[in-house]
Design a protein around this nucleic acid. Sequence first.
DNA 1: TTAGTTGCAAACAATTTGCACGTTG
DNA 2: CAACGTGCAAATTGTTTGCAACTAA
Lengths: 144, 144
Amino acid sequence: MIDSKRELKDALKPIGRRATHKRALLLDLLRRIPGHPDAETLFIEAKKLDPRISLATVYRTLALLKKTGVIEEHLLGESHAHFEAVSPTPHFHFTCLKCGRVIEFRTALLDRLISELKQKNRVELQEIQIDARGLCARCREAKD
Amino acid sequence: MIDSKRELKDALKPIGRRATHKRALLLDLLRRIPGHPDAETLFIEAKKLDPRISLATVYRTLALLKKTGVIEEHLLGESHAHFEAVSPTPHFHFTCLKCGRVIEFRTALLDRLISELKQKNRVELQEIQIDARGLCARCREAKD
DNA sequence: TTAGTTGCAAACAATTTGCACGTTG
DNA sequence: CAACGTGCAAATTGTTTGCAACTAA
């Protein structure tokens, strides 16, 4: 959390935003909570550490962290968003529509696809969202 | 539209749903409207052809068409969904956050990525969403 | 004829916002 | 101390739903 604060300060200062206690707390949670929590889950967890935090702050912080690029937003087949601290190895998610399990899929093709996009269209990529849905191997076999 | 109706009939009959006038009209619009209309846009266009259609029907129809696989849903960086008739050549979208332009990006890597996902994890893929955002070449140069 | 479909308006869920007060640099 | 951050509750947005009337097969 100390680390998160220092790091946040460096990331937020240039854009005139502050590294507050609550922001560091949320970034920390995002890095410690396994999986891909949604805003509500983060809110509940954050309240355990700081009971005075509000859901509005969670949303505002998520938007800010996303803008600075330290977290990503994912749509895992539900009507609300999920979040994840960016990982050093790029990957995407496959969500089983039956059991809800999320598989993280890593492949070199992803980097190649991204660099091809950048190169061919000369775009500045700020965000790419890849989310797949279907049936996992287990649920697929368990015919019902 | 006659064609859409025949085609719809074949697609919907097996699941006990009907090929109605309004459904054919909406599918037709999705195939004729350039770009990636959202529900509201489709509603406005549909009303020109059938003033008695409701927004609820648009949403219900979009969900149904998506389920049968004839259309796709995309998240282009706005808070609402956009739709598109499935195209024979798979592609994904890059939306410029400044001018709003949408670039369709086709690459063989996409098919390879999908088949690798299926093969390695033995999943049944029902839906994959790839949406990228950033600055297009033009807006990138036009520094402001 | 009978199940599926639609319009309408109300309900909903997720997220955003205005404002007065608190906090950071 | 000036600018930014926060809690609270209300507002907004996009989408879904219950129900009575309608229509396709």
